[in-house]
């Protein structure tokens, strides 16, 4: 028996909105420690990794490891039927080919039940190595979203460069070019408005903006985002989910021919 109740059901809605343009099907890998999802886009250019600890659910029950394959289209249709302040319970019995969703309003007056057929999804899992990054930059998530959106008006690719002077985003195309520089903040009122730059080594990488704009669909999940960069390696974009999980996106760089 698998059962997990998320008090803030809106978090599930936001997670699905964040990945539905990248992947069509996902496997929920459920164990006693929590739920994880790993899925790649069809071109194998980017990967989404969701990790949710069991302590984010009340109750959480997973008698034995179980993989639940779901089509995001059906999942998206169902979670849209939940109100933002509803709790969402996910239930699956062993040996059945359905997954159940129960939505409950905060006062308990309204409950809704939905069932989705499980799918057998053949997904490749990649081993993601522990990486010591050259630079790790934490910034407001809306700021990152704005930069990606603005830069994509100029070109298809963005160059991200971290030096002791800060982080620079640049793009160029037929129309012209643009650069945006961010420096480490000195004094800010709210921690979530802070720009924090850890630099071990200067780094300079190029990425396709199309994918970064998909990743920023996760902005409603968290006020902050972390970019982890290493020379000639995939970028890792991390959105924390409350204090119990995260959504990470990995993006393969563009490299000089």
């Amino acid at each position: 028996m698998f059962e997990a109740r998320l008090i803030q059901g809106s978090v599930l809605k936001k997670m699905i909105d964040a990945i539905k343009d990248i992947v069509t099907d996902i496997n929920l890998d459920c164990s006693s420690t929590g739920i994880s999802v790993q899925a790649m886009d069809s071109g194998h250019v980017c990967l989404v990794l969701i990790e949710l600890g069991s302590d984010g659910f009340e109750p959480y029950r997973c008698d034995r490891n179980i993989t639940l394959g779901l089509g995001l289209k059906a999942l998206s249709v169902v979670v849209r039927c939940a109100n933002n302040d509803d709790s969402i319970t996910i239930k699956a019995q062993e040996g059945t080919d359905n997954i159940n969703f129960v939505f409950e309003s905060p006062n308990g007056e309204k409950t809704s039940q939905f069932e989705i057929k499980l799918m057998d999804i053949d997904s490749e899992h990649l081993g993601i190595p522990d990486t010591e990054y050259d630079s790790v930059v934490k910034m407001p998530s809306h700021e990152f979203q704005r930069i990606c959106r603005d830069m994509s008006q100029l070109g298809d690719s963005i160059v991200v460069a971290c030096t002791k002077d800060g982080i620079q985003f640049s793009a160029s195309g037929d129309m012209g070019s643009g650069k945006i520089n961010l420096r480490q903040s000195s004094l800010v009122d709210k921690e979530e408005d802070q720009i924090n730059i850890e630099l071990n080594d200067p780094v300079h990488l190029t990425f396709a903006l199309r994918y970064l704009n998909y990743f920023t669909k996760a902005t409603p999940l968290s006020p902050t985002v972390t970019l982890s960069l290493k020379a000639e390696s995939p970028l890792c974009v991390t959105y924390p989910i409350g204090d119990f999980g995260s959504m990470k996106f990995f993006l393969a760089p563009k490299i000089d021919d």
């Binding site: 790649m40 071109g43 194998h44 250019v45 980017c46 990967l47 490749e124 899992h125 990649l126 081993g127 993601i128 190595p129 690719s157 190029t206 396709a208 390696s233 995939p234 990995f250 393969a252 760089p253 563009k254 490299i255 000089d256 021919d257």
Partner: peptide
């Protein structure tokens, strides 16, 4: 010009 790499180039299949 830049060409797009794939993740399988960096991360091994499990």
């Amino acid at each position: 010009d830049n060409s797009q790499t794939q993740l399988t180039h960096f991360f091994s299949k499990k």
